[in-house]
Nucleic acid binder design. Structure first.
Lengths: 196, 196, 196, 196
DNA sequence: TATGAATGAGTCTTCATTCAT
DNA sequence: GATGAATGAAGACTCATTCAT
């Protein structure tokens, strides 16, 4: 594997196991098995390295999201939403450590806010895509006309986002099955609504 | 005002305007109008100071949550949930900068995880309370029996949590009215459900 | 007991148990059961406090030394030297922590060097007194004329001084009996000499 | 010269001229002509740096001590002891500033006590070696059988130890000749003994 | 006399980044 | 491209001392 990839993997690993504040260039280099200087042969700065890692995480998630559009009208709505919610949950669990740095360093956020938005890579992008899917299903008559598609997307993804947060807070890994159940109950409740 | 409170306010202000990584003891002292040394007459450490600020934020939110139980069966369910969702949104907007530090410094998280849970101050506490409220309303016949109370709570609070995250990401203040609308649409969609 | 004495005792206790670098005004006040401010009602400075403690230690030792002159010609020379060597050993064990500060802070030493010498309180004072005693015994014919009295004093007190150092280094208390034996062997060897 | 050595020399110089409490990382760096940060590229901590300096001092002294064993039965006993006593005196004069820190910071002592003893580098090591030499000479009939070898070693080295202490206390350099005389008188008195 | 909050200078250490080899 | 020593700015925290009450 090329050193560039080794470094990205090392950064990811250190962030996930030791937290951002312990993710020093020295530690990344140690895990990547190279010198600190080498980091700067492949990335402009530590910030740049983090940006690339974030982008890599996001890409995996977006791939699932784009598949969603192709599934309009196919399978059940619940099945389609289940798939995307599970992908979202996994992504949030992975990305929350890096994402939180956005608020730890607003200067970082300020520097890249524009870039994120220009390239439509902002965090709300996912909600927009899911919202678009739900609106499409509404037009196909497979979703209640009274529902607000964006609200529906916010409810589903928001619940996953916060759940990821809680899981990482607890610090114990959750079984695959538990995650499926969580999403399933979410969707069941969403589909039926609260009104008596 | 006593210096202790001045320091807490200064810390809060610096965190919200400059971000955690710029929230140095020197800057806090400058804003509080005292010496750095004074910080340590009132707080054991910077970490302790942050903990107190977090606690203060949480208390305001919990006060609203406890009121919720008193409203069982009163007003409409939607009205009750609206009130709590708005409080949650405000709390999340305020606390997200500090909360994100939990993931930046897992050692901090590890040190206080137990304490949070023992005192039932963990972040999931809110979801539990709302869940309890919804279950109670279910028994009163004011909520659909098919709904999973915990899932309903997770959807509502999760959406608010993520929305707070998005708002802070954008970096522009949202009007009071916009927040009400956001919550209102969330609840409308939740009440009716997606099923066609 | 008066606060002044309580403070001196507290200082002594902290120095002996925690070492000079942990002997802060805060800790002394805590042990003395008073406020930090009170220290300055009784002593000009922390340095002054230490000076008083050193003086107190020294006085106990000097009292034994002065008794030595009265014993000229009485008992055996070895008995007289044994008594003084034991007192020296005890004094060194007690004072070594404070004494070492002389070298940690040469400015302290510089400030008080003159004072020590003017008042004949320098550390060599003890050697002079013992030397004087031995010279007196020489004149009485109770000590070998070939011996150099000052060298004899240096040998005896030096051995005790270094032994105190070693004991504190090891960090384990030595039994009373062991100390007596140490001094006894020292004196036996000194009296007979090494020449074959 | 390599920076590592420059730093060690700088540390030694600052300790000897300004005392331990003024030996800050900033001052060491200034004298070494490098940045404070560089200190940490070569030494784990300030404590580690001091440890290396202490070890360097000790090694020079131990070299002389080991030569002593080779001289058994050669030259006169007094000549052999003179050589080792002079080396001891020089070593004590040099090391007393660092050694005294052992008592200023018992935590330092506690951390390294074991290490010192395991590697037989404790301060009593020298006394043991000299004691061994004297015992050997006893067996060769060149030292009085009645003398206790360990006591003899303690007397000689102890006197040198305390003399170093006194010299540093006075603060004036002693001429080479004066040191030789001091040791010579010590040995003369020791050889003959005090008994009349 | 006793207090204890306030001080501010000073300490060790960390860390992202550079650059000559 | 790879190295790793050198950097220097910055940070959290300590502590003897003061002074108004």
């Amino acid at each position: 594997m090329e050193l560039r990839n080794k470094i990205m993997d090392a950064a990811e690993q250190v962030i996930l196991t030791s937290g951002l504040s312990k993710t020093t260039t020295k530690e990344i280099a140690r895990i990547a098995g190279c010198s600190e200087g080498s980091l700067y042969n492949h990335f402009k700065s530590k910030e740049d390295l983090f940006l690339q890692v974030m982008k890599k995480h996001l890409e995996g998630f977006l791939a699932v999201l784009f598949k969603l559009n192709g599934n309009r009208g196919k399978r059940t709505v619940k099945e389609n939403l289940h798939e995307v919610a599970r992908a979202a949950l996994d992504y949030f669990l992975l990305s929350i450590f890096l994402t939180s740095s956005l608020f730890t360093e607003p200067s970082f956020l300020a520097r890249h806010r524009e870039g994120f938005q220009e390239r439509n890579e902002g965090p709300h992008r996912a909600n927009e895509i899911v919202s678009g899917y739900i609106r499409a299903e509404q037009k196909l008559g497979r979703v209640n006309d009274d529902a607000n598609p964006r609200s529906a997307a916010d409810l589903l993804l928001g619940a996953c986002f916060q759940h990821a947060f809680h899981v990482q807070f607890i610090g114990e890994d959750e079984a695959e099955e538990a995650r499926n159940l969580f999403v399933d109950q979410l969707l069941s409740t969403m589909m039926k609504g609260l009104a008596s």
